[in-house]
């Protein structure tokens, strides 16, 4: 099976089917990522379409030395999603986060002792976890999705978000804490 880089090279050499294969390979992930960030089917479709159009338009500019194709695609998808969300204006991108990046949820709720493993072990209810994930601010959600679902490294996530490694790790840590508290709150209610 040809690599993503080989597909791009093949397409630029004139093999039309290579781009179709690239779309087939990554469409599900890109759509799922867009949907989880914007929460809307129609918007996720638009974002996915726009992502691949932008990718096609910039194929000649892609450099394998700077990032994997997957990372590059998710960078486009993420930026496109942010643009859509800004245009929408109904989503509070900092719903739980203050301007300085601190999170009122993690700051105000006590965390005196580590939660027992059972708290997450009990979160076998996928639906509950979905709801908790949806309640997270977009900036927290995207880090968790990119790391745990798309299996990207923190370095790659940093490239996508255009942030330093330590910032990504810090955001990841806060996102996990916030997610845990949302799950716990859901279980207690």
């Amino acid at each position: 099976m040809p690599t993503d880089e080989a597909l791009i090279a093949a397409y630029l050499a004139g093999e039309e089917e290579a781009f179709t294969t690239l779309v087939d390979r990554h469409l599900s992930s890109v759509y799922d990522f867009a949907f989880r960030l914007c929460g809307n089917t129609h918007e996720a479709e638009d974002i996915a379409q726009e992502t691949f159009l932008k990718a096609w338009h910039n194929l000649k500019k892609y450099r394998s030395q700077s990032a994997r194709v997957r990372t590059w695609l998710f960078t486009i998808a993420r930026n496109t999603t942010v643009d859509h969300l800004r245009r929408r204006r109904s989503t509070a991108l900092s719903e739980f986060e203050r301007d300085d990046g601190s999170n009122y949820l993690t700051d105000t709720l006590p965390d005196t002792a580590p939660l027992p493993d059972e708290a997450f072990a009990e979160a076998e209810n996928i639906e509950m976890l979905e709801e908790a994930l949806e309640k997270l601010p977009v900036r927290a959600r995207e880090v968790l999705i990119l790391h745990f679902r798309e299996e990207l490294t923190f370095e790659e996530i940093g490239a996508i978000l255009n942030e330093p490694l330590n910032t990504v790790k810090s955001r990841h840590r806060r996102a996990l804490i916030a997610l845990r508290k949302l799950v716990e709150r859901h279980q207690n209610s």
Partner: peptide, 24 residues
Amino acid sequence: QHVPGRISQLPTHPAPRGLRERIL
């Protein structure tokens, strides 16, 4: 250790029918 397993097990929202063709 529980979190990756849980988040990665969330079902993938499949791309709607026709989206692939619309993109191409």
